[in-house]
């Protein structure tokens, strides 16, 4: 298993090695030590490789991830797994703002809390946060699912499109055009699947409430102008 010590080895070598993985390569497990808040760790992966990062990372860890499984054994800075396409990113600690921003696929699991703007502009990614999320989360969320076991901050789902939001705890306030919606059987099934994929046990889908778009901003109407 190749190990990259970022206190000794430049970031470029790590990312280059990850990008250079040919299909069927033998090295499918990478370890990164001493990340010490470095930015852009394991970005642009495009192969089913497992990357274990021992420590906390800075901005944009696992950015634009495809196929890889990236695990941060620490906390993640802003924009973890931003624009993820597929694969899995797990943050054992907390995540800073913009976690999973614009993500288009794959699964992001945050075992601690996520700060503001979690899932901003999400486009198909599934995000499961074991703790709480901060304000303006899922802002302009287009598609995908955001599951929060804890509480949500202010203006959840502001200007939401078709992303589905499931929150188990309290929601400080809903953003413009975001409303609570009925939890139907299909949603309970969907949620059960997401919880299982994220390794959550002892929590029932029925403990959650579902939020989604009121779709009042879908066609411009002057009487909704206050919401813009």
């Amino acid at each position: 298993m190749p190990t990259f010590d970022l206190s000794q080895t430049p970031l470029r070598e790590l990312n280059q090695a990850l990008h250079g993985l040919a299909a069927g390569a033998n090295d499918t497990e990478f370890e990164v030590v001493n990340p010490r808040g470095s930015h852009a760790v394991a970005v642009g992966c495009d192969a089913p490789v497992a990357v274990s990062i021992r420590g906390s990372v800075g901005y944009y860890c696992a950015g634009m991830n495809s196929a890889a499984t990236v695990t941060v054994h620490g906390s993640a800075g802003p924009g973890v797994a931003e624009n993820m396409m597929s694969g899995t990113v797990v943050v054992e600690g907390d995540a800073s703002q913009y976690a999973g921003a614009t993500g288009r696929g794959g699964l992001l699991v945050i075992k601690g809390n996520a700060a503001s703007r979690c899932g901003i502009s999400m486009k198909g990614i599934d995000i499961v946060v074991h703790g709480n999320i901060g304000h303006m989360s899922a802002f302009m969320g287009q598609s995908g699912n955001l599951v929060v076991l804890g509480d949500a901050g202010e203006a959840l789902g502001d200007s939401l499109y078709e992303a589905k939001l499931f929150v188990r705890g309290s929601v400080k306030s809903l953003g413009a055009d975001c409303v609570e919606k009925e939890m139907r059987e299909e949603h309970l099934t969907l949620l059960a699947g997401l919880l299982e994929r994220a390794g959550v046990t002892g929590v029932e889908p029925s403990e959650f409430r579902r939020y989604g778009s009121a779709r009042k901003l879908y066609s411009f109407d002057i009487d909704n102008a206050d919401a813009y």
């Binding site: 990312n15 280059q16 930015h39 970005v43 950015g63």
Partner: peptide, 13 residues
Amino acid sequence: EIKILELREITDW
């Protein structure tokens, strides 16, 4: 500046 670093790393500079 950090966003540019990410884009450069993804596209190998």
